[in-house]
Amino acid sequence: MTLPLIAPMLATPGTLPPAAQDARWAYETKQDGQRVMVYLPGDGTVLLRARSGEDITAAYPELRPIGTALRTTPAVLDGEVLALDEHGRANFQLLQSRMGLAHAPARAARRAAQVPVHLVLFDVPYLEEPLLRLPYVRRRARLTELGLSGPYWSTPGAVTGHGAEALAATREHGLEGLVCKRLDSVYEAGVRSRAWIKIRNMRAEDVIVGGWLPGKGRLSGLPGAVLVGQRDAAGRLRYVGGVGTGWSEAERTELARLLADAASGRCPFEPAPRVRDARWVLPVLVGEVSYSTRTRSGMLRQPSWLRLRPDLPPEESAADLPRDAG
């Protein structure tokens, strides 16, 4: 059968709900992977779509057997593809070696043998019929009843109430954070909703690379720093600072190649920052940076590069910036 195309519901960055409302929320571990919608038409096949809607099925051949997990029952599942390190924790850098191989199935199969992935499932917006209007607590119950557990996929539990304890546990175990989901929330496809709140254990945000500065000394020929921005409410790319730390030598070399491919003669920031020797690029590369705080004008203090985010489209890297940012 033909399943409906469902865009994933997105969480809004925030803090724990008030203690008085704690029992109205469920808490799930925030996973550090690639968001994926899993389409099971009930004929033994599976289709995996990234958040952008791209078909990424061929990138993860070890997940094909999930196509028979529900036999003939058609379903659309929401989850996250992870690559786990030796401690069983999600490692996005490991996962990056698996991403982007949807059009290279032979390479994907070789990488699958070296870095297998694991799919965690946390919602079911369609099961024989649309479940979008059902509250989260009922969708979660339906998902749990499916018993989806296999060699490369599982359905981790959610905790109702006890949000402070759940968040403390993620910090204690070195996990990325927590997602808080209101028990009565419907599934808002494609919407970044306040009914789902994500809390990161580090202060980090996605940014768009708009330029770079040449390195000096041993970094000659490589980027010494990248110039990054975020889109404001009007869609303009506002400059939020330069990032010059956080890369390994291999990562900096790869970044140099990507920057060369995106070279442009035009500054993408509005307004253009006064940065001497800046080299501009098309605003197509998304990265994640950590930082200590923001200045009143929206600039990032002490930013450090964390990783490239090839799974995110540039238009999503927006922030609630002050009007005079940049």
Rank of each mutant, 00 (worst) to 15 (best):
E128K: 15
A204D: 03
Y239F: 15
A69Q: 11
P41K: 06
S149E: 14
P18M: 10
A204I: 03
Y239A: 06
G246D: 01
S193M: 10
V240R: 08
S264K: 11
P125N: 06
R142K: 13
R98Q: 14
Q31S: 07
G246P: 09
V179K: 14
P313L: 11
A319E: 00
R140K: 13
M299C: 03
T57Y: 07
R110M: 12
C267E: 11
A109Q: 06
R71K: 04
M202D: 09
V186N: 12
T295F: 02
L143P: 10
T253C: 07
L101P: 03
V36F: 10
A256G: 14
R238Y: 01
G161T: 06
A58V: 04
E28D: 06
G14H: 08
V159I: 09
Q302I: 03
G221S: 07
P135N: 13
G215H: 00
V179M: 05
L306C: 01
Y27V: 11
G33L: 15
W25A: 14
G287E: 15
V38S: 09
R194W: 05
T29C: 15
E128F: 07
S220V: 00
T295Y: 09
T29R: 12
H103F: 05
T170E: 08
P17F: 10
D43I: 03
R301Q: 08
D232L: 00
P8S: 09
V191G: 10
A319I: 00
N91T: 02
E316D: 15
G326L: 01
A20H: 08
A112I: 13
L213Q: 15
Q302A: 09
K30A: 15
V36H: 14
L127F: 10
F122S: 14
P13H: 02
E251I: 00
G44C: 00
T253Q: 11
Y60T: 07
L121W: 08
T68S: 07
G67F: 03
G265S: 09
S52N: 12
E176M: 02
D277G: 04
V243A: 08
A164I: 12
Y27C: 11
T29Y: 10
H87D: 12
D324A: 03
G210C: 15
L259D: 05
Q93T: 11
R171C: 01
D55V: 08
S297E: 13
Y152E: 10
E315K: 08
A26Y: 14
V240H: 09
V209M: 15
G287K: 07
G241T: 13
A250S: 05
P116F: 13
Y239P: 13
E251D: 02
A108K: 07
Q114I: 08
G14Q: 05
P303E: 11
E128A: 15
A106E: 06
I66A: 06
A50Q: 14
L308K: 03
I197R: 13
D324Y: 02
H162M: 01
A233V: 00
D232V: 02
Q96D: 04
L308H: 08
V209G: 13
R307E: 05
E165N: 02
T73D: 01
R266K: 13
L183T: 05
L259V: 07
D55T: 07
S304W: 00
A113W: 08
M1E: 05
G177N: 02
E54S: 12
Y291F: 06
V275D: 03
M37I: 12
P283L: 09
H87T: 06
A69N: 08
L258Y: 08
G79P: 14
S297H: 09
A23T: 01
R64C: 04
T15D: 12
T72N: 04
